[in-house]
Write a protein that binds this DNA or RNA. Structure first.
Lengths: 245, 245, 245, 245
DNA sequence: CATGAATGAGTGTTCATTCAT
DNA sequence: AATGAATGAACACTCATTCAT
């Protein structure tokens, strides 16, 4: 196709042109720029397709044929970019977790208001940036496959979980220092606060996809925040009878 | 059976006869019992083995050979009791969910004290009865495989999830009626309260099994309860400055 | 069951009786006469069941489970009488071919009338004695499995085919000697005469069992005989314009 | 395709260019052709191998491993072309029955001579075209497996048997109309005439393959024709004392 | 004798991986 | 770079055979 386009604009090719062409063809038809652009997009297209299928069927239940055809390429092509199914899996995980936590960190560092406001901000931002994204499939995928890929699980843990918890820890610490939050057991509180967020993501890609009584994400988060902020509120300081903000 | 019939029709046997008979028949009778017991125990042994492996590796990743050998039988034997891998999976799920929710329901109905105490009781009982059991693998398994077995997911949802939520709903309703809990959005609150429990179980059989910074279940639950009860406490009623019990 | 019947008629058993009984039981409950009779019938019941199934599904396609349950026994019992599936198959063949050819031979030897009449008699007797019997399944079975059991095929060939051909040969010879039949190539004629009989049997247990436009066996045989006798009739001798008898 | 498009738009290429191109591309083009040819030939190679083995061992007794290795490929390759063992079986049957009956029909329609000659021609042609071919295994295979594949048996019946009988019927009708043949029962006569042909094919792939006293096909057919034509000859018309031709 | 639970070798089928083009 | 035909190891499932009872 490419070649046809190329020669359609050169109806009077002479021998030298042909030699050039042949040289190109001998390189197994080297790809012009349009292809080039796609070529760079390929890995991302493949991991995107793979993410969806891994999340849906699990690692072992996913066929590379399906991944390839969902990405619009042949199965062989997949192996140009990934050495094995496992390598693809790892790429899916690693690609999925890179970007977001940086922003969270910036958010925390740059924030000027109260810890409550910051926590609210974090939770509210989590939904559009992760929870409502395909990225939200990652937690479910990682939970499902952790024991089949322990090293990867550790990597995920250290890169995502630990850093996510760091964000919450920073907020809690700030709130407790300022007296806005009552003193609580730090580490377990972090887990308890995060659990509903994670469960929401996991649910969405598991039971929620089957027997979904439509889930109102916004309401769920509002309730979550409400409960957590109430639960953290320092009774000695906060004005009584008022919802903590 | 034959033997039983035989002694029922001979009521005039005296002790010595029985000794003779018993000695003679011992190797005809006693071993069948062992066999019998084994035969009846087999399905449970197999589903137990299967549960462990399904939870660990996922459905597709589990080899029936492994299930069989973990149960101490050959692969063929497995097929005496289950028609297919899928049938085994379904049996694992169904067998796992039968027993516990009844007790929960009784607990709620029979409780005399405050809603807070009841909620505390529920959460505290959940751990030894489910969370600390192999049954706790079920949520993780179901989350992982829901989309591969949608009908089963619906069954699980209706049988376990819905009924579990009913328990919490009953408690919340009681507390809100009595004024012990402040008014909150019922349905989402239920989910938010349950999420940390479920996450704890899921975690235990996923990332927790790999990168477990030893998880202190008791402390986690104490914090969870603390946060929830604080968060639900009715500020108009509860004595200020005091941790809700 | 047997035992129950036995002790129901002896409500006042004393010790010695019990010793006798126990001795019997130690022999693993020796079988009374009713059983005995069945015991002798067992092999025949089993081969009968096996014949049907082998004919229907072929050797490899037949499950011993099915054979046993069609004969009303358990699979283990089958192995009390036959060492292996192959042994059962051989028994089926051997049992099926024993009886009939003797009679044919007697028929030929004792016959006084014309060769035509004898041939007609043979063909007509073939139907009720073999063709309309389960035995007619044997040719189909043997054809199907000959190459899987060459030695058995040779045995069958020598025992059935050769002897069957001998019968026809004797008749043809007699007819040719007497001038009733015109001279023909003996050996191939025998085959050509037998072929429709065999095909009829084979058909019945193969395509005829599926897409049977109801097959009128009598008419088929009449036509066969008619064609053969016409075809063999000696034009120099037979009264012209008259159907040969 | 690319290459073709390329040269279509370059009509001014001269011979030398083409030589260059051909040399360069030779290893890009010529080998695909070989592949292509193989790829298209594969199904036929596979069904050919399968036919042999199915005829020899029966459907259930044939291992796909053997089919594949007889065709010179691996077992997996077989599944690129056939969905299942059963699909392969059906392909074997369907592929085997397509071609020959058309010719027979043409033969009958175009024939000018006597019905006897036509019948002789049909029978004589049958041997080199079918009887002496691997196709002759089909009847044996179909007989053996009819009851395991009833729908296929019906298809075979309607496509092969019925049409084969139509050919004979047409000949008989012609001969009876012309007075060449005496009046006989049409339908059963067809069967009786065909039976020796079919038996010959079946025999060849069953007992004949084991205990073959070498079978003289030509002589067998001559006798068959001789007997049939004598048997059909109209005594009112045919010159007496003369073998019908 | 009779049973049927247990076995494990064998086979149909799938699918990750390779490689010639 | 891309394809897809080919491979073969792996696994679900079957069934002839054994054996404890």
């Amino acid at each position: 196709m490419t070649i046809i386009g190329l020669d359609e604009s050169n109806r009077s090719l002479i021998l030298t042109d042909w030699l050039v062409i042949n040289l190109c063809l001998m390189n197994l038809i080297s790809q012009p720029h349009i292809r080039q652009r796609r070529k760079e997009a390929r890995p991302a297209e493949l991991t995107a397709a793979a993410l969806e299928l891994f999340v849906e069927k699990g690692f072992a239940g996913t066929r590379l044929d399906d991944v390839a055809s969902r990405a619009g390429v042949s199965k062989g092509t997949l192996y140009l970019y990934f050495d094995s199914k496992e390598a693809l899996f790892k790429a899916v995980i690693q690609e999925g977790i890179v970007p977001v936590l940086e922003e969270g960190s910036d958010l925390v560092d740059g924030h000027k208001g109260s810890a409550s406001q910051l926590l609210r901000l974090m939770v509210e931002e989590w939904w559009p940036r992760i929870g409502d994204t395909h990225l939200a499939g990652l937690p479910k995928l990682m939970m499902s496959e952790a024991r089949n890929f322990p090293e990867l699980a550790i990597y995920y843990h250290d890169t995502v979980i630990v850093r996510g918890k760091n964000l919450i820890r920073a907020i809690l610490k700030r709130g407790m220092v300022s007296g806005e939050f009552r003193p609580v057991d730090m580490e377990t509180t972090i887990d308890v606060i995060l659990a509903p967020l994670l469960m929401q993501a996991i649910w969405r890609y598991s039971l929620g996809a089957c027997c979904g009584t439509r889930h109102d994400a916004k309401r769920y988060q509002r309730t979550h925040l409400d409960l957590v902020l109430y639960g953290l509120a320092n009774p000695d300081q906060a004005p009584k009878g008022k919802t903590p903000k």
